[in-house]
């Protein structure tokens, strides 16, 4: 039952800019097992996004081993990486990255278009289910410009889970949202996690990290902390305690 989803060993990532080498990651090790909800923290420039891009198979490490769901990612072709991203990973971005003038439903369907084994009927059903799960069953035909930031991020989350990935990767998914909406999104993540989804969540807000069950802290390309969260906050409860803004 203790299934390893992500395993990295001595991951290094160097960028060559002119004659200078920027060492963004200087040898990172950790594993994430199925059902974990991990937040990756650290100051700006510590290498969080770089790490997440590698975990998401968008970028390759300069050296080190990365295994995703028992598949060694190194040396895979571009097309094989694309297939891996399509089938095993759900990405969520700070800026949502929804296609403009495209309905929520079509945005959520998008990953399944790149999977030839999914019929158009199945694609629609799965997208509808994903949207219902994030609480947007009544907003399927709305385009991003007709949705609030929080709703847009929910569409993005639905898009990230529609392909039933082994891991959801989020880079500052609450970075553009106010506290209340952030907590609502975290409640959604906790809900997904309780349904068995593995999540790696980059943030630099400590209160957000408290909603996860493990925190990895990076500093200057090194992992400096990797602890389970002692008192996991329940986002739904935290929402209740927030002062009601309308009355302020």
């Amino acid at each position: 039952m203790d299934k390893t989803i992500i395993k990295i060993e001595e991951i290094k990532r160097e960028f060559l800019i002119g004659n200078e080498t920027v060492r963004a990651l200087k040898g990172i090790n950790f594993s994430i097992t199925q059902g974990e909800f991990v937040t990756i923290m650290g100051t700006s420039g510590s290498g969080k996004s770089t790490l997440l891009n590698i975990l998401g198979c968008l970028d390759q490490p300069t050296s080190g081993i990365y295994e995703l769901d028992k598949v060694a990612v190194k040396n895979l072709s571009k097309n094989a990486l694309a297939k891996l991203r399509n089938e095993k990973i759900g990405f969520i971005f700070q800026s949502y990255n929804l296609l403009p003038r495209t309905t929520a439903l079509e945005n959520v369907e998008l990953p399944l278009y790149y999977n030839k084994t999914v019929s158009s009927k199945e694609r629609k059903e799965r997208a509808e289910n994903a949207l219902s799960l994030v609480g947007l069953a009544d907003r399927m035909d709305h385009t991003p410009s007709q949705l609030s930031g929080g709703q847009q991020q929910r569409v993005a989350i639905a898009r990230a889970i529609v392909n039933d990935p082994v891991v959801i990767l989020a880079d500052e998914a609450t970075g553009n949202l106010d506290t209340r909406t952030s907590y609502e999104i975290m409640a959604l993540f906790q809900d997904l996690n309780s349904r068995g989804k593995t999540i790696a969540f980059v943030t630099h807000e400590p209160d957000i990290a408290l909603f996860s069950n493990r925190t990895i802290v990076l500093r200057d390309g090194h992992k400096i902390k990797d602890n389970p969260v002692d008192n996991i906050n329940i986002a739904a409860e935290a929402l209740q305690k927030l002062p009601i803004e309308e009355e302020l």
Binding site: N79, K83, R85, N86, E87, F91, N97, L99, L110, Y114
Partner: peptide, 16 residues
């Protein structure tokens, strides 16, 4: 460009 990046991130291959 961003749309292209997104499509690639969610599994679009170069040929797609």
């Amino acid at each position: 460009t961003r749309e292209i990046g997104l499509r690639m991130a969610i599994g679009g291959r170069g040929v797609d």
